[in-house]
Amino acid sequence: MLINWLGALPGAAAQGMIWGIMAIGVYITYKILDIADLTVDGSICTGGAVCAVLVASGVNVWVAMLAAFIAGMLAGLVTGILHTLMGIPAILAGILSQLILWSVNLKIMGQPNIALPARNYELILAQMNINQSLLMLIVMIAVFIPLLYCFFGTEVGASLRATGNNLNMSRAQGINTDITKTLGLVLSNGIVALSGALLAQYQGFADINMGRGAIVIGLAAVIIGEAVTSRLSFNLGLRMLGVIIGGVIYYFVYQTVIFLGLDADLLKMLSAIVVAIFLAVPYWKKNYFTKAKGVKVCSK
């Protein structure tokens, strides 16, 4: 039993890192831009579908992953346009995109799922070859996080951070917040689709349902990551690394409760409950656990 559990940990780590990359996409919208973007449930599948279809038709896997990244960015662009040009609240814009993507993903694949067996194709990840997968993921993350860190240190990246931080102030400083929001959604969904491409390779198939509840897993990784790094530093690179660690911890816990014999049908509900509680904690702290200060006189 214990041996089984230990044996499952490397696989959990690999899955955790893949979902951690996805969660960095969630971090960009949810934490940096202050938008809850539900597009990700669809765009992660889009990434998997594009990658699977292209690889199955003989395209090089790296090219297929690039295509998946671009497809995800387009999905983000659709959400961005719905939100900024059409004035639809972000959460609803994401839901609409998600529904659009359901049809798009089926059309991309032509069927509800596509097998992508590692023995037939040249893939960069595979469940059968965990060590190589782990190494590849670590290398990718080591390239990826510094790249993102640099992006958020540019003038454009800083205007994205400012937009999420204070919308009115950003406009007053001449930032076109419609563009920065859309740019953030594009980048975020590109990353999410890329993780979908990695996931499809790792599990050996792309499936129309692979993104269901992705936002919750992403939020869980973001929240766990915050808990791990919040006391250490405000550094954005470290925060993003924390999100990856959050994903890994999530999958360790996931694997553990399965080994403890928990009904796998209940896992999504439990994930949602855990995320709900963690999202509630700051609110409770603010409203119930702080002493009321004197009533502030509002002057206008």
Binding site: G153, E155, V156, R161, N165, N166, G174
Partner: peptide
């Protein structure tokens, strides 16, 4: 001001008011 950004970053945001923002380190 942007509360989660540093003092110098807030000033730098204002200094670029009305100018195009590039992909240069800021």
């Amino acid at each position: 001001t942007a509360a989660d950004m540093q003092i110098d970053e807030n000033l730098a945001l204002a200094k670029r008011r009305g100018k195009s923002r590039s992909f240069k380190w800021w």
